[in-house]
């Protein structure tokens, strides 16, 4: 089921792009990521809208009054919160959904990259069985695609990346993944002037943990996945910028958010 719906079509799409652009798998991953981001852009726009609404809600006088009123009664506070969500038309999970959708896409893409690059006999046999018939539909002979050109810039896309300097392997791509993830998290983070805002604290935690997590993935897994992460991060920033939601000043150390400028 997973193979049929996600991995095989992803692999086929990647290989079609690869073939169309003349055999560069790195460029194929970048174009494929852009394609996926374009398809999921409406979801991203809805996520941004929901996040903005949620931030506004957190800072609204109405919510702060309710918090004060039911300070000692957590159950009642939660009930009033839900009522207020309903009244203002806010879905607490709407801003979360696009991020959740990204996760199967990442799984699918990773498996597709590994399948297409087929660095073991077993992977090549799966490729031959699952992807070839779909490619035949587009009149592409799978024998022409084996092996794929897995070299992109200085990387072998099927292997974790290291740049060797003085005999030491430096995981340059993992560092770029971590930095771009951090930058994306910071500049797209909804601003909150309230230091006790739980959501803002969680956002800050995510901005720290996600670069470490994705950096770890980049360090450990095939560098093709890192190309996807970096492209995805840059496109993510571009998408926020297009919607006027990027706050570059958030990168300045010691920056204090000015919500009136950011959230209107």
């Amino acid at each position: 089921m997973w193979e049929t719906i996600i991995v095989n079509p992803f692999s086929t799409a990647l290989l079609l792009i690869y073939k169309l652009i003349g055999g560069n798998f790195g460029i194929a991953i970048i174009l494929f990521t852009i394609l996926i981001r374009l398809i999921t852009h409406p979801l991203m726009a809805s996520q941004i809208k929901s996040s903005t609404k949620m931030t506004e809600f957190q800072q609204s006088k109405q919510w702060q009054d309710i918090q004060k009123k039911y300070k000692g009664d957590k159950e009642k506070l939660a009930q009033e919160q839900m009522n207020l969500y309903k009244e203002l038309g806010i879905s607490p999970f709407a801003s979360c959904l696009p991020s959740i959708i990204q996760i199967p896409l990442i799984f699918g893409l990773y498996q597709s990259i590994m399948r297409a690059l087929a660095s073991t006999p077993g992977q090549l046999l799966i490729f031959t069985r699952a992807v070839s018939p779909l490619l035949n539909f587009f009149h592409i002979n799978s024998a022409d695609l084996v092996p794929l050109n897995s070299k992109f810039l200085w990387m072998n896309l099927g292997q974790p990346e290291r740049v060797y300097m003085f005999g030491v392997g430096i995981p340059l791509l993992a560092l770029i993944v971590a930095v771009t993830t951090y930058v994306q998290s910071k500049v797209t983070m909804p601003a909150s002037p309230n230091p006790n805002d739980q959501g803002a604290m969680m956002n800050k935690m995510m901005a720290l943990y996600m670069p470490l997590l994705l950096g770890y993935f980049a360090l450990t897994f095939a560098s093709g996945l890192s190309v996807y992460f970096i492209t995805g991060n840059l496109i993510g920033i571009a998408q926020y910028a297009l919607l006027g939601k990027v706050n570059w000043r958030a990168l300045i150390p010691g920056y204090k958010p000015n919500t009136t400028a950011r959230n209107k």
Partner: peptide
């Protein structure tokens, strides 16, 4: 979910990359 992703990706990497006969 991110942690689950770490586990599943790890599993994917092992399962796929280790395949032969």
């Amino acid at each position: 979910l991110a942690l689950a992703m770490a586990v599943v990706l790890g599993g994917c990497a092992t399962g796929l990359s280790a395949s032969s006969w």
